[in-house]
């Protein structure tokens, strides 16, 4: 597809790093069963026209990377500067939404806020080279979650030729728009095994208060009062007792939860058990066999 205009926005995941502190390839770290590289590419795909992964020449056959469209480093040197310059060189008319592959907390909201600010800044300053977040730690620009405009290519080449290799310092010296983070943790990167363990705990388990899908089966009086045998609900209920409270309000059940028992995933359960995404719940009114 031809580059239609300078407004065409492509996505770039930087995955050429050495991961030396992690002692494992950071792109291949998994959260919730998916590699961070896949998660980052899917996130970008919701905001950019196409997504590429930035790699070194010796990484093109790596299976974690090879399933994506690649941009291989075309300039000498190393580090993120080379990845960004290679992307700008490969598609000179496009702007690039660039993110590092070690930012597991990045969200759609964070990228959308960045792109909205970039639109406003570009309208006000046609000479803009980049739009980036301001670090919560030191107030300096975060170059690895940023939009890089096509006109940054020449300035980056010049900076690079002069011995510069730090995209952060480049942004401090050139026309870059900085905005304050909209989510506190969004740009925390994961560099060490300890940080990965912490991030996994946060991302693998649905945090309290986040909606889960719960399947409910109804029998006897409950079925008649709910007007259905089964339903799947999105709920943030922490326990079956909380869930029953929500459903009682919705369906007008006459029995209180003290009069019921509850089963989760096919066996009796405590009312205070912690619900998980995908659980199957049955509320059991007083029985009358025989």
């Amino acid at each position: 597809m031809p580059e239609a205009s300078a407004q065409r926005l492509l996505g770039l995941v930087l995955a050429g790093g050495a991961s030396s502190r992690m002692r494992r390839d950071k792109a291949s770290l998994a959260y919730g069963g998916r590699t961070q590289l896949d998660r980052a590419a899917e996130l970008l795909a919701r905001h950019a026209a196409a997504v590429f992964v930035s790699v070194r020449a010796d990484q093109v056959n790596d299976p974690v990377r090879a399933r994506h469209a690649l941009i291989v480093d075309s300039v000498d040197g190393g580090g993120p500067m080379v990845g960004i310059r290679s992307a700008l060189a490969a598609h000179p008319q496009a702007a690039w939404l660039v993110i590092a592959c070690d930012l597991p907390f990045l969200s759609d909201r964070v990228l959308a806020a960045l792109l909205a600010e970039r639109g406003r800044a570009l309208a006000a300053d046609p000479g803009l080279m980049a739009t980036a977040y301001r670090s919560t730690h030191d107030g300096l620009p975060e170059p690895l979650c940023a939009v890089w405009e096509p006109r940054a290519a020449a300035a980056l080449a010049e900076y690079h030729a002069g011995g510069g290799h730090c995209p952060r310092k480049f942004l401090m010296r050139h026309a870059a728009r900085l905005i304050d983070p909209v989510e506190r943790q969004a740009l925390d990167n994961v560099n060490t095994p300890e940080e990965y363990a912490d991030a996994s705990r946060t991302l693998d388990a649905p945090a309290a208060g986040h909606p889960m899908q719960i399947k409910i089966q109804y029998y006897a009086l409950m079925r008649e009062q709910a007007g259905r045998s089964t339903e799947t609900v999105d709920s943030a209920a922490a326990t079956p007792a909380d869930l029953y409270g929500e459903l009682r309000a919705r369906h007008g059940f006459t029995l209180s939860h003290e009069q019921l028992k509850v089963a989760v995933n096919g066996d009796f359960a405590d009312w205070s058990r912690r619900l998980r995404d995908g659980d199957a719940v049955v509320f059991i009114p007083p029985v009358a066999g025989g």
Binding site: A220, L221, V282, I284, P285, P286, V287, A288, G289
Partner: peptide, 25 residues
């Protein structure tokens, strides 16, 4: 009779009906 999740709905000559142990409670 106490423990197994089975429910009994009685239909009465009056035309009324009810789930035993559930509705009146």
């Amino acid at each position: 009779k106490h423990r197994v999740p089975i429910w009994k709905k009685e239909h009465y000559r009056s035309g009324d009906s009810g789930w035993v142990n559930c509705e009146r409670c």
